[in-house]
Nucleic acid binder design. Structure first.
Length: 521
DNA sequence: CTGGGGATGGGGCCC
DNA sequence: CGGGCCCCATCCCCA
C-alpha cells in the first residue's frame, strides 16, 4: 500500500508553508534579500545547509556565488524539485544556477544545470569553475557579482571563517575583522536595488517601517518572501551611508561554506564559550516559541528590560516563523498582548501557537490578496493604530494632545503631565505611555515604541556591529558602547563611589556597586 | 559555593 | 533619526 503522490503533496504543503512563513525556522540572507525556509528541507537538499542549520538560524550566503534572484530559483527548486522555464531563459541563467548549486552543494540541481548546458552545447565545467567570465556577467536580476578569480584581496579568509576558527583570537587582526564586518554591512545595507520581491503590480510594499512585505503572486513561481535588509534597517547604521557600494570581494574560486550568523559575532577578548555560539535571538529550539519570551514579557510594554541580558541565554525573540506586522484593525482581544502578527492578514495573537493555528487557516490565495492599505497606518493614527482599545489607546484626547502642530505652551503630557519643550518631544514622550507598539521587528516580531529602537534591535538580529575597537577588534552595535569599552583599554575609571572610593570604568557598574551599598542585605 | 567587580547586550527614553 | 544615557539582566572571573 502506498499513498499516491504522498511526497509530492508533502512538498507542496511545505512550499505553501514556506510561502506563509509558517514554521520557517531559518532565514537566509542573500545580499539584500531575506528568505525564510525550513531547516529540515534545506538540510535534506544541501550538504552545506545540512552542516549549517543545526547551529545557525540566520545564514548569510556569499553573493559572489548566488544572487537573490538565483537563490529564489534555488529555493523554488528545493521545494518543488523543478525549475520554471523562465529560469532557463539563457545559458547564463543556467550558469548562475550551476554556480549557486555547486556552492550550496545541491548536487541534483547542479546536475540538472549541467545537463541543460550540455544540451545547449555549453561546457558546464567552465561555469562550475566559476571563471570570471561566467561570474561577472549580470545575473537575471541585474546583480553583477564581483570578480571571483581576479581579486587579490585577502578578505576571503574571513569572509567565510566558521564559528570555531573565527572565535580564535589572533587568527586575524582586528582591523581585518573590522573590514570583514564592514564588507558584510555593505552587502546588507548598500544594495539599493530591490530584488525580485515586488508585488505583482511591481511596487514594493512597505508597512511604513521600510519593511518590504510584498508578496509574490501565486503565478510568479513559488512565493518566496524577500525582505530587503536595507529597508529593514533603513540605513540606520551610520556606516551605511559611508560604505562604498562596491561589490564584496573574494578571491575564492571554489565554493566555500556560506557565512553564518555566528560569523557576525564579535571575537570577544575574553573567553565566552556561550557567547561564541550565539545568535541569541535565533537560538535553536526556540523558533516555535512555546515558551517564547515574547509570550510572557517581551513586548508587553512593561518588562522589556526583562530581556536585557537575555541575549546570552537566548530566551528572547525565539519565534522566527513570521515576519510580523502590526495588528490589523478589528482584531483586538487584548491588543497589547497580541504580539504575534499574521503576515497576510495582520491579525495579532497572544502566542505563537495561536498564530500558527491561525496562519494555517489562510488559503494560499488569501496570502496574496492583501492590499497595501495599512502601510501608513501607524503614522496616520499616531501609533495607536486603528484597533482602538481602552487599554492601548488611552483616549482621543491623548492623541489630540500629541498633534505635531500643537502649540500650547508647556506641552504637557496628557498622561503624566510631564512638560516637554516642544510638540515633537511631547509626541515622542507620549509614545512611552502607549501600550501598543507600532514598530515590529521584522524578524522576531518584538514590538517597539520607537522606530529607532526597532532598527537598533534589528541590528542585533543581523549581527551588524559597525563600531569596532581598534585595540582588540571587538565590535559594538552602538558607538556609545564602544566609547564605554575603550575605557577597558585605557584603564580610565571615571566613576568613583562616594562611599568607599571604589572606581569604575562604567557608570552602570558604579550604580550597581552603589546598590550594594544601599541594599539592606 | 558565594558575592563582588568587570564587562557586555538589549530596551526605554530623551535630546 | 542618531546619539547619548539610563536601566536591567547576564555572563565571566576571581577572591
Amino acid at each position: 500500500m502506498e499513498q499516491q503522490n504522498h511526497s509530492k503533496q508533502l512538498l507542496l504543503q511545505l512550499n505553501q508553508q514556506r510561502a506563509k512563513g509558517y514554521l520557517c525556522d531559518v532565514i537566509i540572507v542573500v545580499e539584500n534579500a531575506l528568505f525564510r525556509a525550513h531547516k529540515n528541507v534545506l538540510a535534506a537538499s544541501s550538504v552545506y545547509f545540512k552542516s549549517l542549520v543545526p547551529h545557525d538560524n540566520l545564514i548569510n550566503l556569499d553573493t559572489e556565488m548566488v544572487s537573490p534572484s538565483i537563490f529564489r530559483q534555488v529555493l523554488d527548486f528545493i521545494y518543488t524539485g523543478r525549475l520554471s522555464s523562465s529560469d532557463f531563459v539563457s545559458d547564463h541563467s543556467i550558469s548562475s544556477l550551476l554556480i549557486a548549486a555547486s556552492y550550496l552543494q545541491l548536487t541534483e540541481l547542479a546536475a540538472l544545470c549541467r545537463r541543460k548546458l550540455k544540451h545547449n552545447g555549453q561546457t558546464p565545467s567552465s561555469s562550475n569553475k566559476m571563471t570570471p567570465s561566467s561570474s561577472t556577467s549580470p545575473t537575471p536580476n541585474g546583480h553583477t557579482p564581483g570578480p571571483l578569480c581576479l581579486s587579490s584581496t585577502p578578505l576571503h579568509n574571513h569572509q567565510h571563517h566558521n564559528n570555531h576558527s573565527g572565535s580564535k583570537k589572533g587568527s586575524q587582526r582586528p582591523g581585518q575583522e573590522g573590514r570583514l564586518r564592514e564588507d558584510l554591512s555593505e552587502k546588507v545595507f548598500i544594495s539599493g536595488s530591490r530584488c525580485a520581491s515586488l508585488s505583482p503590480s511591481g511596487e514594493g510594499r512597505s508597512n511604513g517601517l521600510g519593511l518590504d512585505l510584498s508578496k509574490r503572486s501565486p503565478s510568479e513561481s513559488t512565493a518566496t518572501e524577500e525582505v530587503s535588509p536595507s529597508s529593514l534597517l533603513q540605513s540606520s547604521s551610520p556606516h551605511s551611508s559611508s560604505l562604498s557600494p562596491t561589490p564584496p570581494t573574494t578571491s575564492s574560486a571554489k565554493p566555500e561554506p556560506p557565512k553564518t550568523s555566528t560569523d557576525l559575532q564579535p571575537r570577544a577578548p575574553r573567553k565566552r564559550p556561550r557567547g561564541d555560539k550565539v545568535t541569541p535571538e535565533l537560538e535553536d529550539g526556540e523558533v516555535n516559541g512555546e515558551e517564547n519570551g515574547l509570550d510572557q514579557s517581551e513586548g508587553s510594554g512593561h518588562s522589556g528590560r526583562g530581556g536585557g541580558g537575555g541575549g546570552r541565554k537566548g530566551r528572547r525573540n525565539g519565534n522566527t516563523n513570521y515576519i510580523y506586522r502590526q495588528p490589523q484593525p478589528g482584531f483586538e482581544p487584548g491588543v497589547g498582548d497580541n504580539l504575534y502578527v499574521c503576515i497576510p492578514c495582520g491579525k495579532g495573537f497572544p502566542s505563537s501557537e495561536q498564530l500558527n493555528a491561525h496562519v494555517d487557516t489562510h488559503t494560499h490565495d488569501q496570502l496574496y490578496m492583501k492590499d497595501e492599505e495599512e502601510e501608513e497606518e501607524e503614522e496616520e493614527c499616531g501609533g495607536y493604530l486603528k484597533d482602538k482599545d481602552p487599554d492601548t489607546c488611552p483616549d482621543d484626547s491623548a492623541s489630540k494632545g500629541v498633534k505635531p502642530d500643537a502649540e500650547e505652551p508647556g506641552h504637557l503630557c496628557t498622561v503624566c503631565s510631564k512638560s516637554c519643550k516642544d510638540a515633537t518631544s511631547l509626541r515622542q514622550h507620549e509614545k512611552s505611555h502607549w501600550l501598543n507598539r507600532p514598530f515590529p521587528c521584522n524578524i522576531c516580531g518584538k514590538l517597539f515604541t520607537q522606530r529607532g529602537t526597532m532598527t537598533r534591535h534589528m541590528r542585533s538580529h543581523l549581527g551588524l556591529k559597525p563600531f569596532a575597537c581598534e585595540e582588540c577588534g571587538m565590535r559594538f552595535t552602538r558607538q556609545y558602547r564602544l566609547a564605554e569599552h575603550m575605557r577597558v583599554h585605557s584603564g580610565e575609571k571615571p566613576y568613583e563611589c562616594q562611599l568607599c572610593g571604589g572606581k569604575f570604568t562604567q557608570q552602570r557598574n558604579l550604580l550597581s556597586h552603589m546598590r550594594m551599598h544601599t541594599s539592606p542585605s
